[in-house]
Design a protein around this nucleic acid. Structure first.
Lengths: 147, 147
DNA sequence: TTGCAACCTCAAGCACACTTGAGGTCAAGC
DNA sequence: GCTTGACCTCAAGTGTGCTTGAGGTTGCAA
């Protein structure tokens, strides 16, 4: 493979991102990535897919489910390398998400501080545990965290 | 049941915490709760178990896995109602956890800010995506979030 | 040309956090 | 005393995010 080849193999993508090959195939299945195929049916990714996978990892660290990440990624062009502006837009959206999360945690902390005084955690007047104040559960399976 | 009965049924515990009856049985199975039994083999919980369940909910919101929550709960007395001091100790531990999370998010945000300028997200020098900087994956299953 | 790592598909398995279902028991009110 | 809803157990199912395995193909290189 020439050094200027714009395409990379699945193994290279895996190595560059630290994600398992099987996970990359899984992401492709789920529609988070798209790959071209060689004549011999092997996947070839764009170099820019390294960024795409990195984005998936960061978003997961923030607690986004793959479905939500897919929605976010839909804002990027498919098939061509995103421009710097494309990525900057994504970054700003992410920053907003992070801000939201920090605010929510801060709110939880403040409420907890109020509770330390009374040791409640379970009284009707405690907003921390109040089930109507809870972020709705989303059915079975792992719950989303602090969103 | 007399109004001063110190015990509550599983249905009452479910109603007071907003958690499904099946989930409470599951928590008991997992060792997060303990129940007495009536002669007719029905569970009877302490009123203080309402707090215990509330704690589980809050800890889950912070992204703790049930196993970790179990460890935390081990610091509470089993079988008798925890004192105010017991709960205050828990609250302070939780506050620490929350602080950690806020710090990690703040760090992530700062790194992202640096990235907005270059739109990188995937370059070797970018600390955000750097796979050695990643919080280690913990095998299969849902990953812990920002811990 | 042959060897071998890297690739392919498809099906099944796994950990977590529960829910659902079948089939049966308990207890409070009429 | 009978009905009815709340309770019981145990097994199997569900959704998410993957991994593992079987069985086969590709492609670089010695």
């Amino acid at each position: 493979m020439a050094p200027r080849d714009p395409f990379i193999t699945i193994g290279q993508l895996a190595a560059r991102t630290g994600v398992a090959v099987s996970a990359i195939r899984f992401y492709e299945d789920r529609g988070l990535l798209r790959a071209l195929r060689t004549e011999g049916n092997q996947r070839r990714f764009l170099r820019s897919d390294i960024r795409r996978v990195s984005f998936i990892l960061i978003a997961q660290r923030l607690g986004l489910a793959l479905a939500e990440i897919e929605t976010q990624l839909a804002n990027l062009p498919q098939g061509r390398a995103p421009t710097l502006a494309d990525w900057q837009k994504m970054s700003r959206r992410m920053r907003f998400e992070i801000d939201q999360r920090i605010m929510l945690l801060t709110r939880t902390r403040n409420q907890l501080d109020q509770c330390i005084g009374c040791g409640c955690l379970s009284l009707e007047r405690c907003r921390l545990y109040n089930k109507d104040d809870k972020l709705g559960a989303k059915g079975p399976g792992p719950r989303a965290v602090l969103d």
